[in-house]
Amino acid sequence: MSDQGSMPPPPPPPPPPPPSGGGGYGAPPPGGGYGPPPPGGGYGGGYGAPQGAPPPNHLVWAILSTLFCCLPLGIVSIVFAAQVNSKWSAGDVAGAHEASQKARRWAMWSAIVGLVGVVLYVLAVVVGGVSSNSNA
């Protein structure tokens, strides 16, 4: 990733037609909770799809852990991310929220395992002078 530190916030895109999704909890409409369903329905708008935005599917974290944690845990997280949107569009609100939690959990475990691995490696280098090939 390039210099994200210096990346200014992007120019505000025009507010899309509701629901822009993804954020879900982030910016609920005034009124709290999931708020009243915005007019227009969800993405995809299939039959049975609840109105409003689906719960967060944590897909970005799943991709990050797949690419940078070098462990297949992230792939499980992608599966749950897809389930969030699948179940939501099928009208399974509880299932979508459950999948959202699982996606989050797996992405977190993947990140934790990756971090622990790095810390152990640094310790090994410091203590034992171990070196190994870089294949990540």
């Binding site: 505000p12 822009s20 935005a53 944590h58 897909l59 970005v60 991709i63 939501w88």
Partner: peptide, 20 residues
């Protein structure tokens, strides 16, 4: 910052299955 940008992740589920 209070905007509502189009989300990458609330795409239709088949797109995510495709990513998988």
């Amino acid at each position: 910052l209070g905007r509502r940008p189009p989300s990458l992740t609330s795409v239709p589920a088949p797109v995510i299955w495709g990513v998988l």
